[in-house]
Write a protein that binds this DNA or RNA. Structure first.
Length: 607
DNA sequence: GTAGGGTTAG
């Protein structure tokens, strides 16, 4: 029997030689399975090969081999189901499982835990529950593997942790995997406190601790942003001797970064005697959020130390370029992405769209967006936010409609993007139509942010009374962002009475917002109520707080210069003022009249 | 011969 008969010649030669040889050997052996050395019945070698193929991503070859097997037992079926799961072909895994049951092959604990892993990945609760039923039917409630897989599936697919906890409680003797699966269930759904509660219980019951339990416990601290608890667990990691385990160290590094302790993160990073790509990515990502310039330095350091960046690295580096609005650098990074063939990665392409938009090149955003072979909700949303920020409301609206036509279900965030774009482009009626459709067609309940967008939409267009009526009709108490949107509209359209009311509401909810005092005092000043004005100013001085100075930045000859009003930045200032003069000239040409009143009052004593 | 939990992006 020739192996080549199984596959086309081209396919056969595409297989790595080491596999090709073993395949040849295995086929020769199975062909001689009537020799006394090999057992009759399903081929053990073929099953091994199915696993071998799947591990190397050669799932099609595994399937061909499976189909050629004259007899298939439960082990062969399970190898095939697990193979599909490990190659992320979950629906195939499920189809295979169903076919196996239909063929009358009785599943064992291996089969059920493999099938459950597929259900978890597909978030298919009904399939998972079916497997649970089969586990009970076939008397496999005692299998630790099945129970742990059931917990994992329920924790991932259910709205609450109740079902996973129920399975957990029914396990007589829990092992380390049972505990960590439960903690992971809580932590991955954002309930770090729940995860830490289980971790504490694990310590109280003196369950076996291993690196897995510590890395997830650290992750739980990170998710609640608790530096204190994180530090405590870090000490426990050292006490238990897991401080040389790389995933544990990486999660600790991530904890320091996300808790905003960059100097501690940096120190910890330099003390680590082993580092992998995740270590570098974690640090780069941590710096990207708080100090983008430094994150780019770390990136170049990483490359000089011989690490090759992956999708995660590039996503953070691209975001850093976006934060800094450095087009030239962003273009180079994009070049690196294409050069390494990573431009097909969805999340990375989304980051590139965002980067070009934030660096001012919306046409490049659109180019990347158009060339994507598959797009998710984030891709469409990012593109719409970009259009909105550039004032292209019509394009954003068209994109939204195109997205709906392509069958993507909108969420609150994409509605915020399109509403904000409508707002900035004065497309009031379109925006209101989307707001109605969101509630009517998609059953999305508007939250504070959405109401804030619609108030802004009406307010900017001068329909301030309508905006106020909308606020009055809200089914819950409006927060300061909603009142803030109304206040902005009152200021722009010179409505002192409604403006005072809005400002009072904002101050009730956020008494420390100095900007609101500035706006309120300016309203009094505009009305000539100097006594009230003086009271406001006195209040602000009493608070001792400062209004954050408005910072601007500009890219001149591949350098980004950041500055505030009246800044003197040394010799480079002449470049900046040169470009600013040009911009001001263009703005005046376009008929722009600056709102100098507020500027004077802002500067007087608030900066 | 087949099965498990942890760390990085959006």
């Amino acid at each position: 029997m020739s192996t080549k008969r199984l596959l086309s010649t081209a396919d056969f030669h595409a297989i790595p030689p080491i596999i090709r040889n073993s395949l040849q050997w295995a086929h020769n052996s199975t062909a001689q399975s009537n020799t006394p050395f090999l057992p009759k019945g399903p081929s053990v070698l073929a099953t091994n090969l199915i696993k071998s193929y799947s591990e190397r991503g050669l799932i099609k070859e595994a399937r061909i081999l499976f189909d050629e097997m004259p007899e298939r037992d439960v082990v062969a079926w399970t190898a095939m189901i697990a193979g599909y799961t490990s190659c992320n072909h979950y629906s195939h895994a499920w189809a295979m499982f169903c076919e196996m049951v239909r063929n009358g092959v009785e599943p064992n604990a291996f089969t059920l835990s493999s099938a459950l892993k597929g259900c978890k990945s597909m978030k298919a609760l009904s399939y998972g529950a079916l497997v649970h039923g089969l586990a009970i039917k076939h008397g496999m409630k005692e299998s630790m593997y099945v129970n742990n897989a059931l917990m994992d599936m329920y924790a991932t697919c259910c709205v609450s942790m109740d079902e996973a906890c129920m399975v957990f409680q029914e396990i007589d003797v829990k092992n380390a995997v049972s505990w960590t699966t439960l903690i992971t269930g809580y932590t991955h759904r954002g309930d770090g406190y729940g995860g830490l509660r289980v971790f504490r219980q694990m310590l109280l019951e003196e369950a076996e601790l291993n690196p897995f339990s510590f890395s997830i416990a650290v992750r739980a601290c990170t998710s609640i942003g608790s530096y204190t608890l994180g530090k405590l667990i870090h000490s426990a990691v050292i006490t238990h001797g897991f401080d040389t385990n790389l995933p544990v160290m990486n999660s600790i590094l991530d904890m320091y970064c996300r808790c905003g302790c960059l100097s501690e993160a940096n120190q910890y990073f330099h003390e680590m005697n082993e580092k992998d790509l995740i270590t570098w990515n974690t640090l780069i990502t941590g710096y990207e959020r708080l100090d983008s310039t430094e994150s780019l330095h770390i990136f170049s350091q990483m490359e000089s130390e011989g690490f090759s960046p992956n999708c995660f690295t590039f996503t953070s580096v691209t975001a850093a370029c976006a934060n800094l609005a450095v087009l030239n650098c962003g273009q180079q990074v994009h070049g690196g992405i294409v050069h390494r063939g990573l431009d097909g990665n969805l999340a990375l392409a989304n980051a590139v769209i965002d980067m070009y938009a934030k660096c001012g090149s919306i046409s490049d955003s659109r180019k990347v967006f158009s060339e994507m072979t598959c797009r998710d909700l984030v891709s469409w949303t990012t593109m719409m936010i970009g259009y909105g920020a550039h004032g292209y409301g019509k394009e954003a609206v068209e994109l939204f409609d195109e997205m709906i036509r392509s069958g993507i279900r909108p969420d609150k965030i994409v509605y915020m993007a399109v509403l904000s774009a409508c707002s900035h482009a004065g497309l009031v009626d379109e925006g209101l139509r989307y707001f109605k459709s969101m509630v009517g067609d998609y059953n999305i309940t508007p939250n504070q942010e959405i109401y804030g967008c619609v108030v802004d939409l009406l307010g900017r267009a001068g329909r301030v009374e309508e905006a106020y009526e909308l606020i009055e009709s809200m089914p819950f108490k409006p927060d300061e962002s909603v009142w803030g949107a109304l206040l902005g509209a009152c200021k722009a359209h010179k409505l002192p009475n409604l403006g005072k009311l809005a400002a009072r509401r904002v101050l009730d909810l956020r008494p420390n917002m100095v900007g609101t005092y500035v706006m309120l005092s300016n309203i009094y000043a505009a009305e000539g109520k100097w006594g009230e004005y003086a009271n406001m100013r006195k209040l602000m001085r009493g608070m001792g707080s400062k209004k954050e100075a408005g910072r601007s930045w500009i890219e001149v000859r591949d350098q980004v210069y950041s500055f505030v009003v009246g800044d003197k930045m040394g010799s480079h200032i002449k470049w900046v003022y040169g470009v600013l003069d040009l911009l001001i000239w263009h703005m005046k040409e376009a008929g722009y009249v600056p709102d100098l009143d507020c500027l004077i009052h802002d500067q007087e004593d608030a900066t």
